[in-house]
Design a protein around this nucleic acid. Structure first.
Lengths: 175, 175
DNA sequence: GATATATATCTTAGTCACTAAGAGATTTAG
DNA sequence: CTAAATCTCTTAGTGACTAAGATATATATC
C-alpha cells in the first residue's frame, strides 16, 4: 500500500470513527434530557448557560438556531422547573438575562457523571503529551466545524441556481 | 503548578473543548437537515443506513431510540422524498428492509462536503502518527460513550429511591 | 423634545414529529 | 392447529417549533 493510500485509508477510518462516536454522544445527550424530564433544546440551552454564564434570550436563539419565540418557551419551561431565572437588565430594560440556579443545575450536572467517569477512564490511558495533542485537535476541529457550518449556511443563502455544484431543488422543503 | 494539577487542568480544558466542538457538530447536522428539507431524525436514519447498509425498521427504532411508530413516519417521509425504498424480506414477510436510493442519497452526501473539506484542512496539519493517535482516541471514546450511555440508562431503570446518589424526583417528567 | 426607526422579547395560531396503545400480518412454539 | 411472540403500521393526542406580529424599550434624526 502506498504512503498516500495508507493516509487516505486512515482518514476514512478516522472520519467514520468520529461520526460514530459523535452520533453516540448525541444519543447520550438525548438520554440525559429524557432522565431530567426536559426537552432536548432545553438541555442544550443549559449547556450554553454553563459554558457562557449569564446570557440573554436573544443570544440563546442565536447560538441554538431557534427563533426567539421558541426560546421564550424554552426559558419558560426551564424557569418552571427551577433550573434558571430571568433577570431584566437594569441598563437596557428590553433585555432579559438568563442565569442558572446553581443548586438545581447541579442535579443536571450529576447526569453527566457516568460520561465523565467513562471519559476519565479513557483518558487515563493517555500521556500528558498525547492529551495535549487531543486538545489541540479538539480546538482545531471546533474551528473547522464552525467554518463548515457557516460555509453550508452561506450555501443555503445562495439562490439555488447560483450554487456551485449542488442541485437540491427537489429536496428543499416547500414553505 | 504540580504535575497532577497540570493534568487536571488539561483534562478540564479537553472536556470543554470536546463539548464545544461536539455541540457545534450537532448544529452542523441540523443545518444539513434544514437545507435538505428533511427532519433531524430523518437525517439521522440516513446516516445509520449509510453506516450499516440495509437495515430493518425495527433496527432503526432500536438505534435511534424512537418508537416503531415514529420510524414508520420517518421512512414514509424519506421514501416520499425518494431517498430510500422499502423492501419486504422474502424469508420473513413481517420484516421491512430499508435501503438507500444511491443517486438521491448522494445529493445529501454533498451537503457534507463543506465539513469534509474543513476536516481535511484540519487533518492536513497532522502527521500520520498523530492521526493514528486520534483514531485510537475516537475508537476508545466511542466505547466510553457507549458505556456511559448504558450506565445512564440503567440508572433510569433503577427506581429513584434506590439510585446511589442522584435525587431527581422533582425533575422527572410527570406521565 | 418629538418622531421615527431599530432592537429585544413575548404572544398567538397553526404545523409537524413524537409517544402510547393497540391493530394487522406473519412466524414460531407447544 | 392454536397460542404466543414478533414486526410493522395506524390512530389519537401532545408538545415543541415556526412565522408573523404585538409590546416595550432604546437610539437616531430632525
Amino acid at each position: 500500500m502506498s504512503r498516500t493510500k495508507a493516509r487516505a485509508a486512515l482518514l476514512g477510518e478516522l472520519e467514520e470513527a468520529m461520526r460514530r462516536s459523535s452520533a453516540q454522544g448525541v444519543l447520550y445527550g438525548q438520554t440525559v434530557a429524557n432522565v431530567a424530564g426536559i426537552a432536548n433544546s432545553d438541555l442544550e440551552c443549559m449547556d450554553i448557560l454553563h459554558l457562557e454564564g449569564r446570557v440573554t434570550a436573544g443570544r440563546l436563539a442565536e447560538v441554538t438556531g431557534l427563533t426567539t419565540g421558541a426560546i421564550t418557551g424554552v426559558v419558560d419551561r426551564l424557569e418552571k422547573a427551577g433550573l434558571v431565572r430571568r433577570e431584566r437588565d437594569e441598563t437596557d430594560r428590553r433585555k432579559v438575562f438568563i442565569t442558572v440556579v446553581p443548586e438545581a443545575a447541579m442535579k443536571i450536572g450529576q447526569l453527566y457523571v457516568p460520561m465523565q467517569q467513562a471519559m476519565e477512564k479513557v483518558w487515563s490511558a493517555y500521556s500528558d503529551e498525547e492529551l495535549r495533542l487531543l486538545l489541540r485537535f479538539a480546538n482545531d476541529g471546533y474551528k473547522g466545524v464552525l467554518a463548515a457550518t457557516s460555509a453550508l449556511k452561506s450555501l443555503l443563502d445562495t439562490p439555488p441556481e447560483k450554487r456551485p455544484d449542488l442541485k437540491l431543488k427537489k429536496l428543499r422543503r416547500q414553505p
